[in-house]
Amino acid sequence: MKKNSLLSTIYLWIVTIILYIPIILTVIYSFNDNKSPVYWTGFSMRWYEELAHDRSMKEALINSLILAFSSCGLSILIATSAALAMRKRESKWDKIITYLSTLPIMIPEIILGMVFLGVFSFMNLPFGMLTLIIAHTTFCIPYIFSMVKARLQGIGTQLEEAAYDLGARPFRVFWDVTLPSILPAILSGAILAFAMSFDDVVISIFVTGASTNTLAIKIYTKLKTGVTPEINALATVLLVVTIAVILLSEITKKKEE
């Protein structure tokens, strides 16, 4: 029994290391003093400094943040009200709508990107932040919607009925009881959506304009000219942000339980 668990521990470690070696190397080499991605010549923060002084990087970062925050905000509103509305009445369309609304998660990104491109060109929308936000909102909604819907099913209607019974009017019931109950679900869904938006490349490339770059697009385009330590530094920053966001989501989920 003990031997077995030791074996499986070793196995787990090997798998983990193989999986994470590229990531670990990226992080390590972002601190390399040398421009070469092969030779380690000493610890340095110079790539991070360079990153900080790169104006286009800053712009891309700001774009990424604006994009992630606004598409998250919009999808919170849309997804939450949709989930709430669907709870009110039971209809046979519910299943279909639920299924359809999760499609953006399942459809390959490249196809989604092409569809957006087609629709936006047809509508004659100027490509840029607006189209980015619309596209990102679309694929962010399912994450929040599914979480809020599950949560609403989980809490049932009894707490709200108790509030009504105690004299609370509909808006008050929503504010005092419904919202606090679904808030953790909204948050963890939104955090996940934020992470998705923040590191999306494929869809963004299809729908962005010539002058609007996001951080993720920036990495992708820079990579075409080869891996530079600056990219390593940028990837590390993104990695840290993403991990932090996902940890946050896990923590809120834990709290919910």
Binding site: Q158, L159, E161, A162, A163, Y164, D165, L166, G167, R169
Partner: peptide
């Protein structure tokens, strides 16, 4: 229900 002078104790308490 919120205008009725009647209150209910729910089977599984339904505490907030």
């Amino acid at each position: 229900p919120y205008l009725r002078d009647v209150n209910m104790v729910f089977q599984n308490y339904a505490l907030f």
